[in-house]
């Protein structure tokens, strides 16, 4: 497996680019790339040329997260002011504005079927689930307080939820917190199942393997990527190699590799059969906040694609094979 740099756009945004996701192809157009930045804009790009399709404004403070509905029709973007804006990808028409005060908004993720949007609720120590039809809050999955701790206990603030991930079958939801623990929920019953331990520093990104609903990858500030059996509560692997925080992790659609982006300015590709980094891309000049594989399917998809975005304001596109 190999990554090959295809194109880079310098100064894609006026400020650091903090979030990126692929918007699935629809009947009328191929897949698009959605990026969000500290410059308060969300931009839509056409791959592989990385032509700017549109710039969405309307966010205040930086855009920290973007997520696209699996249908590719709608997408959501969230900013530091804790608003989530849901909009039509093609028209930029606002569909809904979501907030659940006092919970802030960090990473978000549509579930694989597209019926629910999960939003990491930061200091509320919970994940908020929004119905994508009514845009009503349907559930708040809270991480239980450790036993014996008082409500005033400072440690609770360490359960600050940063990241969320849906299992490919949509039955499980995992969220990662500042203290490094990962919590797994049964979505159907809206029930907390268990913690996955091993990290002691913030887990900023999580992703399930697309081919095995049990396998979860986590990226943490402790420079490690862990591989868990999310059902069996066990850690099955740890991959080290980054020299600074691992900010983002994504699994390739074929499930054979994962890519990570790190504060050490590199993007690494990990072969899961060897559990080792097989390639390191160092084209970025600042922290790499996001990596994302283009999902399979749709028309006009020529081979696998990986995108990375960075504090250096640039977007880089790679071919993955």
């Amino acid at each position: 497996m190999k990554l090959a740099g295809l194109k880079s756009i310098e100064n894609a945004h006026d400020e650091s680019v903090w979030a990126a996701t692929w918007v699935a192809a629809t009947d009328s157009r191929p897949a698009l790339l959605l990026t969000g930045s500290l410059d308060e804009t969300v931009k839509l790009w056409r791959a592989d040329e990385l032509d700017l399709q549109r710039t969405n404004t309307g966010h205040c403070l930086g855009v920290v997260s973007v997520s696209a509905h699996p249908s590719g029709v709608i997408a959501a973007s969230a900013s530091l002011d804790s608003f989530v804006r849901v909009f039509d990808v093609d028209t930029n028409a606002s569909i809904a504005t979501l907030e659940a005060p006092p919970s802030e908004v960090w990473q978000m993720q549509f579930d694989p079927k597209g019926t629910t949007l999960a939003v990491a609720g930061g200091g509320s120590a919970s994940v908020k689930l929004w119905d994508t039809a009514t845009w009503k809050l349907i559930a708040s999955l809270s991480i239980p307080r450790p036993e014996g701790s008082k409500p005033s206990d400072k440690s609770n603030s360490k359960k600050f939820v940063l990241s969320v991930a849906w299992s490919p079958d949509g039955r499980r939801l995992a969220c990662g917190s500042m203290d490094g623990t990962i919590s797994v929920f049964d979505v159907a019953r809206a029930k907390f199942l268990h913690h996955l331990e091993g990290h002691s520093m913030p887990v900023r990104s999580l992703v399930y393997s697309p081919i095995d609903a049990r396998v979860l990858f986590s990226a943490s500030d402790d420079t490690h990527v862990h591989m868990y059996d999310a059902e069996g509560k066990s850690q099955v692997g740890a991959m080290s190699g980054h020299t600074s925080w691992v900010l983002s992790v994504d699994a390739s659609p074929d499930g054979a590799a994962i890519a990570t982006g790190s504060s050490d300015r590199t993007v690494r590709l990990w072969d899961l059969s060897m559990r080792a980094a097989v390639q390191t891309m160092s084209n970025h000049t600042d922290q790499v906040w996001g990596v994302s594989f283009r999902p399979m399917g749709g028309n006009g998809n020529r081979g696998g694609r990986l995108v990375s975005i960075s504090d250096d304001k640039s977007i880089s596109l790679y071919g993955y094979s």
């Binding site: 331990e197 868990y228 066990s234 099955v236 559990r275």
Partner: peptide, 17 residues
């Protein structure tokens, strides 16, 4: 050799890793 390095640790016990 990473291939031998497959170990299962109970995630809650991994504190003792």
């Amino acid at each position: 050799d990473n291939k031998v390095n497959i170990y299962d640790i109970d995630a809650s016990a991994s504190i003792l890793q």
